[in-house]
Amino acid sequence: MVAPLMQTFVQRRVIGIFLLIAAILAVAWGHARLAPVMRHIAYLTGWILLAVCLFLTAYNARKKLPFLPLGNSRTWLQIHAYVGYLSVALFFAHTGWRWPEGWFEGILAALYLAVAASGVFGLLWSRVVPRRLTAQGGEVLYERIPTVRRQLAERAEALALNSVESTQSVAIADFYNHDLAAFFVGPGDLWRHLIDVERPTDRLQNRMDDLNRFLTPDQRVVLAQIAELVRQKDGLDYQHALQLSLRLWLFVHIPLTYSLLIFTALHVVLVFGFSAGVGFH
């Protein structure tokens, strides 16, 4: 069977890390070699760093031009990530492994590190969360979550209300009003889902187990149906929390990137505006 050679992720990672290490060593070597003979090596590393930052930002532009043959997004992301790591090395080469003392340069450096750190976090998070989502199941489009949530709430409410008539008791309806109504309406506890400990359902399940002891067989059937809806709602909240988190980290990474670029522009103006005097007489 002649199949086109497909690169495995391991191969790709090995190549990527190899190239990255090679590039970092090249930067370190170049810097160590040039620093003694180049008094103003910060100009060289600075312009390279700026070019690298602009290239990294260009990924955003690529995403806005999906119809142009500008290369695959996956290739871009790979390069974006590895060049991002490389830029950290360049950054430290530029600052000379020293934290800038002034306010402006301090903020500039902090912005850079925040953008880089959020990027690293985003990449790790993007690798971890999909596995969790897939293991959990209940795949749903993020935009359709409110619709599904409402459907579940309506079905649970209907079950609870109908139980008053069908079981001649308000036990389940009371329980629903007291313990479940709020759970079905809201999006759930974001953090608990994100860190995946002590899910809200554990608590609800205990209460339902407690209630179950005191119910008639009819009521138990209804409660079991509601319990299934609770499980589905919990799964929906889990999807919501994790899918939201996959979108929210970009609320840090992207705005700070533009802040960083603005600071960088002023940095360039200051560097040139405040170092240019009369060179020779």
């Binding site: 180049m38 008094r39 103003h40 910060a42 312009w47 040139f272 170092s275 240019a276 005097g277």
Partner: peptide
């Protein structure tokens, strides 16, 4: 304005290497 008038200027890319090497002193 001073930054733009700097010699070598911000955009004189061909001189970056010389600036970095200190052949053309920037921080004077």
């Amino acid at each position: 304005q001073t930054a733009l008038d700097a010699n070598p200027g911000m955009l004189s890319a061909h001189q970056f290497q010389q600036v970095a090497a200190g052949v053309i002193p920037m921080t004077t």
